[in-house]
Amino acid sequence: MSLHPKPPIAATALDSETLLRSSGLRVTRAAQTVLELLEHASQPLTHDDVVAAYTTATGEAPDRVTVYRVLDRLVEAGLCDRRVGADRVNRFSRHVEAASGNIFECDQCHKVLALPSDPELPKVMSRLGRELRKQGIDTRHTALTLHGTCGDCRG
């Protein structure tokens, strides 16, 4: 499995422009390229991975600070997710929309998958929320992230 995504294809340029505009972000070449790279990545990318993939896709190295800023803006706009692994490295991927709000993350390749809905889970999360409130903790949002090894890495 290749760590670096395929170079962006021209057809996605319009999609990335629309996504950026609808999220209130400036449409720049860097923002479009980074968003397209994350869209086509088979697994979450580190900052260094994004810089390397950007260079491969465009033939020119981007400014590293610009890439940091673009990634931060994409996270703030909800277009991508930032996850900090056990190795304390930030990894970025396109936002995973899970109907259940819950995800699985592979500890080896850091791939993120939406978990299927389970009718019992909201009840369990609600009970946990009530118990936390008894301890003075107010939860605004609850989501479950399961960690383990995906089928590709286990195989």
Rank of each mutant, 00 (worst) to 15 (best):
3 L>F: 07
5 P>C: 10
8 P>Y: 09
10 A>G: 13
13 A>M: 06
13 A>F: 03
13 A>V: 07
15 D>A: 14
15 D>R: 07
20 L>V: 11
20 L>I: 12
22 S>L: 05
29 R>T: 09
29 R>C: 11
29 R>A: 14
30 A>F: 01
30 A>M: 09
30 A>H: 12
35 L>M: 13
39 E>L: 09
40 H>G: 09
41 A>W: 01
42 S>T: 15
42 S>F: 10
43 Q>C: 11
46 T>R: 13
48 D>A: 08
48 D>H: 07
50 V>Y: 00
51 V>H: 01
52 A>E: 14
53 A>C: 11
54 Y>V: 02
57 A>S: 10
59 G>C: 14
59 G>P: 05
60 E>M: 07
61 A>S: 13
62 P>I: 06
64 R>M: 06
67 V>A: 00
68 Y>R: 15
68 Y>I: 11
77 A>T: 03
80 C>L: 04
81 D>T: 15
82 R>W: 02
83 R>G: 08
84 V>Y: 14
86 A>Q: 05
89 V>T: 08
89 V>C: 05
91 R>P: 01
91 R>M: 05
91 R>S: 00
93 S>T: 09
94 R>N: 01
94 R>W: 03
95 H>K: 06
100 S>H: 02
101 G>I: 02
101 G>E: 03
103 I>P: 00
103 I>C: 02
107 D>M: 06
110 H>A: 12
112 V>F: 00
113 L>P: 01
115 L>W: 01
121 L>M: 09
125 M>F: 06
125 M>L: 12
128 L>F: 07
131 E>C: 08
131 E>V: 06
132 L>H: 08
133 R>Y: 06
134 K>E: 11
135 Q>E: 06
136 G>K: 12
138 D>L: 14
144 L>E: 08
145 T>W: 02
146 L>V: 10
148 G>L: 10
151 G>Q: 10
151 G>N: 09
152 D>L: 06
153 C>R: 13
155 G>D: 15
